[in-house]
């Protein structure tokens, strides 16, 4: 749905983004990961033309984004950034209503949408709608920032290090929430981060950038098992690559038939968690159950370890 075609950005003689081409799938989370100065934010900001490309094109649903005024384009694309950039002089509800107002939504529709988003983001409308951003905690501000970005029901949401300012526990919660939100609204999300764990956790596809170039763009498991470049293995980490690989597969995906006594693990847990549970309990096999507690089968140490090897 988003087609990035040979996109480059130069500032003077410095090339920040160098002939990048990516096809971003509809209704998925694509993560662009890289060190600082890798050009990942610039690449993201060229999608909504906060940065104008020096050459190349961005197509959304086949339409060249250069074909309309930048500010009109941006109203159709959600944008959430680190530190959230909430308007300090506007209430939470007014912040969320920003883009729908720019688009001229009528009041009834606007109010309904603000209420819906506040509820989805677990912010009680009665309590939070009239508050000002500085009265919220960091995690709440971040949620309002994402709610604001989603307010006008954009098909595409761009996120630039959206969780960078959060502490680890709130960040993990925010990441889970984002996965839920993505499924719920069927949004196409492009997210930039420097955190490989975040990239693996969220991304159905991950692009690794360095010095303005995309070194590899693939599913997380492929980045680990078949890195295209030494820098990619360096980013994904060689020492714990087996464990990372295990964390990408859920117990439900790897379950084998049969019954097991002893420890029980949810189908949604990763194999890494399942292995950890087995090691901790000193058991050889674990029973896998679905969300309702019904048994699905079992996992053995050998079955889990088989998933931690390439091929």
């Amino acid at each position: 749905m988003i087609s990035i075609d040979n996109l480059s950005k130069q500032y003077g003689s410095t090339t920040v983004v160098d002939r990048v081409s990516l096809d971003i799938e509809r209704n998925s989370i694509t993560v662009i990961v890289g060190t600082s100065g890798s050009g990942k934010s610039t690449l993201l900001r060229m999608i909504n033309r906060l940065v104008e490309p020096s050459s190349g094109r961005v197509l959304i649903d086949g339409n060249d984004t250069a074909g309309e005024p930048a500010h009109l384009l941006r109203r159709r694309i959600g944008y959430a950034i680190q530190g959230n950039g909430l308007f300090p002089h506007r209430t939470v509800a007014e912040n969320i209503a920003t883009v729908p107002r720019l688009l001229g939504w009528d009041d009834t529709r606007l109010r309904a949408r603000v209420l819906q988003l506040l509820t989805v983001f677990q912010l009680d409308p009665a309590e939070f709608a009239g508050k000002f951003p500085h009265q919220l905690s960091g995690g709440q501000q971040q949620r309002v920032g994402v709610a604001r970005a989603l307010a006008a029901e954009p098909a595409v949401l761009l996120m630039d290090e959206p969780f960078g300012a959060l502490d680890p526990i709130i960040r993990a919660k925010a990441q889970d929430d984002l996965l839920d939100i993505q499924r719920r609204f069927a949004t196409t999300i492009v997210l930039v981060t420097h955190d490989m764990d975040e990239a693996f956790r969220l991304g159905s596809r991950v692009a690794v950038m360095s010095r303005g170039r995309v070194l590899q763009y693939d599913r997380p498991a492929v980045l680990i098992t078949r890195p295209a470049d030494p820098f990619v293995s360096q980013m994904t980490g060689l020492a714990d690559r087996a464990m990372r690989l295990l964390s990408l597969t859920t117990a439900g995906e790897a379950v084998i038939p049969g019954a097991a006594g002893g420890p029980v693990i949810a189908a949604s847990a990763s194999l890494r968690d399942a292995l950890s549970e087995l090691v901790w309990r000193g058991a050889e096999s674990v029973a896998v159950v679905d969300a309702d507690g019904a048994p699905l089968g079992r996992l053995t140490v050998a079955a889990i370890l088989a998933h931690g090897r390439p091929g």
Binding site: N48, L50, H71, L72, L73, R74, R75, R76, Y79, I81, Q82, G83, N84, G85, L86, F87, P88, T98, V99, L102, G145, R148, L158
Partner: peptide, 13 residues
Amino acid sequence: PPAVIEAASGMGM
């Protein structure tokens, strides 16, 4: 704050 300005532009103002 630069983030606020950036957000305003990014929202399509």
